[in-house]
């Protein structure tokens, strides 16, 4: 007990640098969550394979940039292509044929994909031990003026890229033709079809864009955690928690929720050195969100009107 108290007193000095880490992590969650929400809104499917898609795509980048030594931006592009391709394949082969089936059936299919991708990655890259992360930017940094807080250029890049892409997706939905079609499909797929919108094509686009975002999130996050097939697959839990805060529909609120989640996961670590602490924080935040934001019955239905 006294040990914990001492630890908690020294924790305050860690808060500024943990804020930096929390924000960085939160930015990546925002990106993953935005992709998840995009897919959910347009196609009505909660994609449990979202993290697995991120993981598999990131291992492609790892293979190209870490193993083969090709410059990391090319590895990132390969991950994006892999993510988009996986999104297309999942939608085209296993979601589209289930049109008209209960949402739960489609969710079950995404869980199957999670297992398939997890197993495949384990067979190819090994399911034990950590891998060297894909470094996009060197880990040099700068000290924030008038403080002793050091911000890494990699952290800054991750945060800016992630948040920029998330907000870019909001803009895509808001301002482009494809975005308007996506909102129309999200609103009422049947009516959208009757109004000449190729619902299958718009839905496939949402899976491809959403999964490509998961891939970018996966590559960005590898330097921040122990990079293996498991840790990235469960990224879907963090993304889902952030998405809950945005009620599974509101993208800007999802970004805010993701950043909040990043901070909530890191702050307790400043005070207590306990394994599983950030998972506990995520769980508590998700429960609070469910209790506060959602009323019973809302979670099962699609966000309309």
């Amino acid at each position: 007990m006294s040990h914990a108290v001492i630890a908690s007193l020294s924790g305050f000095s860690l808060l500024p640098s943990y804020t930096v880490i929390g924000l960085t992590l939160g930015g990546v969650y925002a990106l993953a969550a935005t992709g998840l929400v995009l897919i959910y809104r347009v196609s009505g499917v909660l994609n449990f394979a979202h993290g697995a898609v991120a993981m598999f795509s990131t291992f492609v980048a790892y293979q190209i940039s870490v193993v083969a030594g090709v410059p990391s931006p090319i590895g990132l592009l390969a991950a994006v292509a892999t993510g988009a391709a996986l999104g297309f394949v999942i939608e085209f082969l296993t979601i589209r044929p289930l049109a008209g089936r209960p949402p739960l059936t489609k969710v079950a299919v995404t869980i199957a994909w999670l297992l398939v991708l997890q197993t495949a990655a384990g067979l190819i890259w090994g399911s034990t031990g950590y891998h060297r992360p894909v470094q996009l930017v060197g880990s040099n940094g700068f000290t924030v003026p008038f403080t002793n807080v050091v911000v890494g250029y990699d952290q800054l890049t991750i945060f800016l890229v992630a948040v920029g892409l998330s907000l870019g997706t909001s803009a895509l939905l808001r301002w482009t033709s494809l975005g308007a079609q996506m909102r129309a499909v999200a609103d009422d797929p049947q009516a959208a079809r009757l109004w000449g919108i190729d619902v299958d094509r718009v839905s496939a686009a949402s899976w491809m864009i959403g999964s490509a975002m998961a891939a970018v999130a996966g590559v960005l996050i590898t330097p921040l955690l122990n990079f293996d097939t498991y840790s990235l697959t469960v990224l879907v839990i963090d993304a889902f928690t952030a998405a809950l805060i945005g009620r599974l529909t509101n993208l800007p609120l999802t970004v805010v929720g993701a950043i909040l989640l990043g901070l909530v996961q890191y702050y307790p670590k400043a005070f207590f050195n306990q394994a599983g602490l950030s998972e506990l924080s995520t769980f508590v935040l998700a429960l609070i969100t469910l209790a506060v934001v959602f009323r019973p019955g809302l979670a099962a239905s699609r966000g309309r009107g």
Partner: peptide, 26 residues
Amino acid sequence: FRELTVLENLMVPVDAAARRGMLADA
């Protein structure tokens, strides 16, 4: 479409009928 503005309601079907590439749309 309840969440789309009146103008967007009118334009979305026209857009869809124009059948441009997805990339051009995006």
